[in-house]
Simulated assay, not measured.
Amino acid sequence: MAKAVAMLVALALVVVAATSAGGASAQQCNPTQLAVCAPAVINGSPPTASCCSNLRAQEPCFCQYACNPAYRSYINSPNARRTLTTCGIAIPNC
């Protein structure tokens, strides 16, 4: 269970880091909201509408998440990039 939760959080960060932005406040950045994207980022499943919606809401936080060494490898994963692309979100260049 703990491993699954860690993967979900990591997945959320991957998606977040893969998008864009920068000046988001800590209160707005909540990687747990990206747990809904775990199946897409971890298993390569198609992202759900709520996954894409949550990604868009967390987009300003992606570079912040990408700077975290705990999430870097997830953020750069092919599935995370595919999820962003499928959701119509640009892959960030941080």
Rank of each mutant, 00 (worst) to 15 (best):
M1F: 00
A2T: 01
C29V: 06
A66H: 08
A24R: 03
A40S: 15
A35N: 10
L13Q: 01
S50W: 00
C94N: 11
T85G: 03
N68P: 08
P92I: 12
C52T: 04
K3I: 11
A4V: 12
T83G: 01
N68H: 05
R72E: 06
A21S: 15
A17G: 13
A18W: 01
A35C: 03
T19E: 10
Q64L: 11
A70R: 13
M7L: 11
P46R: 13
S45N: 15
C51L: 04
Y74K: 02
A40V: 11
A17E: 05
A40D: 05
A18T: 14
L34N: 04
T86L: 10
L8C: 12
E59M: 15
R82Y: 06
A49Q: 03
S20R: 13
C29F: 02
A80N: 04
G23P: 15
A24N: 07
A70F: 11
T32V: 08
Q27D: 14
T32R: 10
A6M: 06
S50Y: 00
N79P: 11
N76C: 07
N43E: 15
P78A: 15
A6Q: 08
S73I: 03
P92F: 10
V15N: 04
N54L: 02
V16C: 05
S50H: 00
L84Q: 04
G22C: 13
P60R: 07
E59I: 10
V15H: 00
A26W: 00
N30R: 08
S45G: 10
T48W: 04
A24G: 15
T32P: 00
F62N: 09
C63K: 13
A18H: 11
A90I: 02
L34S: 05
C87I: 07
S25K: 14
S53Q: 10
N30M: 06
P78K: 13
Q28T: 12
I75N: 02
M7E: 13
T48D: 08
A6Y: 01
A38D: 08
L11M: 11
L34T: 03
N93K: 04
G22V: 14
N54Y: 01
A38Y: 04
A57F: 08
P39G: 12
S73H: 06
R82N: 14
A24M: 09
T32L: 08
A12M: 09
V36M: 08
M1H: 01
I75T: 10
C87L: 09
P39D: 15
M1D: 02
A49V: 00
V15P: 00
S50G: 00
S20G: 14
Q58C: 12
L11V: 08
A2I: 07
P60T: 14
S25M: 06
A66T: 06
T86P: 00
C61S: 07
P69V: 09
A26T: 07
P69E: 09
Y65K: 01
L8K: 04
N76M: 09
Q58F: 00
G22N: 13
A38K: 10
A66V: 08
V9T: 07
R56K: 15
P78T: 15
P39N: 13
